[in-house]
């Protein structure tokens, strides 16, 4: 990591962005911690998820399916988490040249590869600023997210009954918050509506957890044929 003294203006801007995003993201670890313990996991299992899995979408998906389906929905919960985690493969590919060589460095980078660290990194102009943005965001969120998860888990453990406090609605609102920034294009809006519709229709028919997985087929169909997509869709990011 670069020394504190000789930072370019680009690197300082990356650092500021990293801290802002890091603080905002870490704060909602409290909701994850609370919801996880209320879904039936104990405090250790909740903290294990934030320490090891460390990818918000998958963590919320896992506890969401467990909350509605119980331990018998385990396979569906695991599959939901894994499918949501597939986007990290693309993030890793994107960050691989930015991170550079070295086994330990790349292993640490892999663990810190999440929506926010990659978003802050790719928003920077110079390669040095991209590296600062990635590491600063990743480390800030890792520390903050795990601390707030523990706090949330302790709170959730004290609260007791989920529905009385409206925390089941909070889980839905949390998913909505993860989805919201992705709804800009018409194609993604259509997929969201289609998937929600399919999952709702199948809920009375299939065992809990499965409707969510079947709804993923909507994404595969729309994506494979590029339905409702603009043909000349520009690739995000301008640093080629």
């Amino acid at each position: 990591m670069p020394r504190t003294s000789r930072r370019t203006p680009e690197e300082r801007a990356a650092l500021r962005a990293a801290l802002a995003v890091g603080l905002a993201t870490a704060a909602y670890g409290v909701s994850f911690g609370a919801l996880a313990t209320l879904s039936g996991l104990d405090i250790w299992q909740t903290c294990f998820l934030s320490l090891v899995m460390f990818t918000g979408g998958s963590q919320f998906a896992l506890i969401g399916v467990l909350a509605s389906g119980g331990l018998t929905a385990g396979p569906s919960a695991i599959t939901s988490a894994a499918l949501l985690g597939t986007r990290n493969v693309f993030y890793s590919i994107r960050m691989s040249p930015v991170i550079g060589k070295g086994f330990l460095k790349r292993a640490a980078a892999a663990q810190l590869t999440i929506d926010e660290s990659v978003a802050v990194a790719t928003a920077q102009r110079t390669p040095a600023a991209q590296r600062v943005g990635f590491w600063a965001t990743g480390i800030a969120i890792y520390l903050g997210w795990n601390l707030t998860t523990l706090i949330g888990a302790l709170i959730g453990d004290l609260l007791g009954d989920v529905s009385a406090y409206g925390l089941d609605a909070a889980a839905a609102a949390a998913f909505l918050g993860l989805l919201w920034p992705r709804l800009k294009a018409r194609q993604t809006q259509a997929v969201a509506v289609g998937a929600a519709f399919v999952a709702t229709l199948l809920t009375p028919v299939l065992t809990p957890g499965l409707p969510v997985l079947v709804a993923a087929v909507v994404a595969v169909v729309v994506g494979a044929f590029d339905l409702l997509g603009t043909k000349k869709r520009a690739e995000s990011g301008d640093d080629s």
């Binding site: 979408g57 919320f60 998906a61 969401g64 399916v65 909350a67 509605s68 939901s80 499918l83 949501l84 597939t86 986007r87 089941d168 889980a171 839905a172 998913f175 909505l176 993860l178 989805l179 992705r182 709804l183 194609q187 993604t188 997929v191 969201a192 509506v193 289609g194 998937a195 929600a196 519709f197 399919v198 999952a199 709702t200 809920t203 809990p208 409707p211 969510v212 709804a215 993923a216 909507v218 994404a219 595969v220 729309v222 994506g223």
Partner: peptide, 14 residues
């Protein structure tokens, strides 16, 4: 799109 579909489905079920 997979990310979008899964999140939307989770919202619906939740």
């Amino acid at each position: 799109l997979l990310t979008v579909a899964l999140l939307a489905a989770l919202i619906a079920v939740q």
